[in-house]
Write a protein that binds this DNA or RNA. Structure first.
Lengths: 232, 232
DNA sequence: AATTTTAAGTGTGAATCTAACACTTGCAAA
DNA sequence: TTTGCAAGTGTTAGATTCACACTTAAAATT
């Protein structure tokens, strides 16, 4: 055996899990996708979606795989949030968990809820108690979402490809839990020049109809490369 | 064997390491503490300080232990940065690494460099090439430091307990790689009302001497709890 | 004793950004 | 034709940011 293998082998190994905090936006509310845990310990209690990392996959791959196994969705915005490694965090054994946070666009919202694993969208306003340290993970994810939303145009990840100003504003209001002035909001968003206004209107929520917008990915990327700091 | 143990046992386990990006500030320059790796693979190449997590310790504890083993320092500011889990990131085997970033106060700076493990402070301006994905970790840590420094009074972690305005300004200039106006800088810092001005002066860098300040921990904590957003 | 040198310390005003505020428009339903 | 409802639109006062230059204290030099 080569010396490095020997050296490494002298150290313990651990089960490594990923747990995903999955946010969605629907009916003017920010929601979290959870389910009832299918195995011991704590079978039947509310839990984030998670699973164990396998030998042939990276952490990011594991997170994507588990999300897609449970929701059927692919190419979803995900980023690593934090790693949880307290010795006693899982009563059944030592498990190190890497938490991810994910944003599901409104268009895929109902799709994600259809999972066989009993996925349920719950309002962030009335979160149930989750197993182990999962509530702690959700709190951290929410802080991250607030920061990201203020700093990068991440909010668009939660909306359909085409959206109206009132929809976008409602999303920010749900994230920040506060009312915004619509004139100031529009001004600020439009000043960034990353939205493309379409000719079509969405009449689903008013007789007059609201113009649809699309997010200009290319323009945004250029701005970011040039050191732009998107701020709500 | 209880059912949950069986379930968990069906999954693979991994070596888990922590690697620390350790920043210091000296001679007006931001520096990184590294050393030459002591074991295979890549023995003798520049590396961050790291080590394997043990059975009886959390990730945070492992990070503190490894820092103290190598530098002799305790109670150092550390926070988790990101987890690295690419399958091939370590050529000698599958290792998942949790990166931490640490700030060593100026008073402990030389102490930290005295390690038997050949610790060396290198300027962030002329970083050597590090093993595996360590340069990537450093880049991420630097971005985090910039953000933190602009948002929380973390810069104080890199200075001695008593410091002068010119020192504090030099630190921020080193972090942001840009000159700041001293009148505006003073105004902004003092407006936060988290500094206590002392009667004593530090004459080490001028004939006139500069007043020493101390950071008011209690006052800052109250501000943070009340939702204050420290910004440079 | 007077002069020079060096870094520390101090205030103002123009420009920009932020935040508060109310009426008009378009369209469907009554 | 009138009514109701959400969408859409500008202005101004106040706050913040940014640029900018001289005075002061003390040691070192003449």
């Amino acid at each position: 055996m080569p010396p490095e293998k020997q050296y490494y082998q002298a150290h313990p190994t651990f089960h490594v899990a990923v747990d995903s905090i999955i946010f969605g936006f629907d009916q003017g509310e920010l929601k979290l996708l959870i389910h009832k845990r299918q195995f011991e310990p704590a079978r039947g209690e509310w839990s984030l979606f998670g699973g164990f990392v396998q030998q042939d996959e990276s952490l990011d791959e594991a997170a994507s795989r588990i999300l897609s196994e449970h929701t059927g969705l692919r190419d979803i915005y995900m980023e690593e949030l934090h790693s949880y490694g307290e010795v006693d965090r899982d009563p059944a054994g030592r498990v190190i968990s890497v938490a991810y946070f994910a944003l599901i666009p409104a268009g895929e919202f109902t799709e994600a809820g259809k999972s066989k694993s009993g996925a349920t969208w719950v309002s962030m306003e009335e979160l149930p108690s989750l197993i182990m340290d999962h509530n702690q993970m959700v709190e951290k994810a929410l802080r991250r979402l607030k920061r990201r939303a203020a700093t990068q145009p991440i909010g668009f990840e939660l909306l359909p490809g085409e959206f109206t100003m009132p929809q976008l504003q409602a999303l920010y209001e749900a994230i920040y839990q506060s009312k915004l002035d619509k004139r100031n909001f529009r001004k600020k968003i439009l000043a960034m020049e990353v939205l493309i206004k379409l000719d079509t209107k969405d009449k689903s929520s008013s007789k007059k109809g609201a113009y649809l917008y699309r997010f200009d990915q290319k323009k945004y990327k250029k701005l970011v490369e040039g050191g732009y700091n998107f701020t709500i």
